[in-house]
Amino acid sequence: MKTFSDAIGIGQVTTAEALAIFDGLDTVEVDFMLGAWQGSGFPTAHPLDGALETYHWRGKRFEHPEHVHPLVFTTATGGTTSVNPLWALPLLGWIERVPIPKSEGVGRIFQRALGLFSTQQSCARLRLTHYRGKESATMVYDSLPINDIFRRVDEQTVLGLMDLKGMAQPFFFVLRREAAALGGDRAFS
Score class of each variant (00 low, 15 high):
residue 1 M to I: 06
residue 1 M to Q: 10
residue 4 F to V: 07
residue 5 S to C: 00
residue 7 A to P: 07
residue 7 A to Q: 04
residue 10 I to F: 06
residue 12 Q to E: 13
residue 14 T to G: 14
residue 17 E to Q: 15
residue 18 A to M: 15
residue 18 A to S: 14
residue 19 L to V: 15
residue 20 A to S: 15
residue 20 A to M: 08
residue 22 F to V: 14
residue 22 F to S: 13
residue 23 D to M: 09
residue 28 V to A: 13
residue 28 V to L: 10
residue 30 V to G: 02
residue 34 L to H: 08
residue 35 G to P: 13
residue 36 A to L: 10
residue 38 Q to P: 00
residue 41 G to E: 15
residue 41 G to D: 15
residue 42 F to T: 08
residue 43 P to G: 08
residue 44 T to Q: 10
residue 44 T to P: 11
residue 48 L to K: 04
residue 48 L to N: 09
residue 49 D to M: 10
residue 49 D to F: 06
residue 51 A to R: 04
residue 52 L to V: 01
residue 52 L to A: 05
residue 55 Y to V: 10
residue 55 Y to M: 05
residue 56 H to S: 10
residue 57 W to S: 02
residue 58 R to A: 11
residue 59 G to D: 06
residue 64 H to E: 12
residue 64 H to I: 04
residue 65 P to W: 02
residue 71 L to G: 03
residue 72 V to L: 11
residue 72 V to S: 09
residue 73 F to L: 08
residue 76 A to Q: 14
residue 77 T to W: 12
residue 78 G to D: 09
residue 78 G to L: 08
residue 80 T to G: 03
residue 81 T to N: 02
residue 84 N to R: 11
residue 87 W to S: 08
residue 90 P to W: 01
residue 90 P to Q: 01
residue 91 L to T: 04
residue 91 L to S: 05
residue 93 G to R: 04
residue 96 E to M: 10
residue 103 S to C: 13
residue 104 E to C: 11
residue 109 I to Y: 07
residue 110 F to S: 07
residue 111 Q to L: 05
residue 113 A to F: 03
residue 117 F to N: 02
residue 122 S to E: 12
residue 124 A to W: 13
residue 126 L to Y: 05
residue 126 L to P: 04
residue 126 L to K: 03
residue 127 R to H: 06
residue 128 L to I: 01
residue 128 L to G: 00
residue 130 H to W: 00
residue 133 G to T: 05
residue 137 A to P: 11
residue 138 T to A: 12
residue 141 Y to E: 07
residue 141 Y to R: 03
residue 143 S to A: 13
residue 146 I to A: 02
residue 147 N to A: 07
residue 147 N to Y: 05
residue 149 I to G: 08
residue 152 R to Q: 14
residue 152 R to L: 15
residue 153 V to G: 12
residue 153 V to M: 11
residue 154 D to K: 13
residue 158 V to I: 14
residue 164 L to C: 08
residue 166 G to C: 04
residue 167 M to I: 04
residue 167 M to T: 10
residue 168 A to R: 15
residue 169 Q to D: 15
residue 169 Q to S: 15
residue 171 F to A: 14
residue 173 F to R: 02
residue 175 L to V: 12
residue 175 L to F: 14
residue 178 E to G: 02
residue 182 L to K: 02
residue 183 G to F: 01
residue 184 G to I: 00
residue 187 A to I: 00
residue 188 F to N: 08
residue 188 F to I: 00
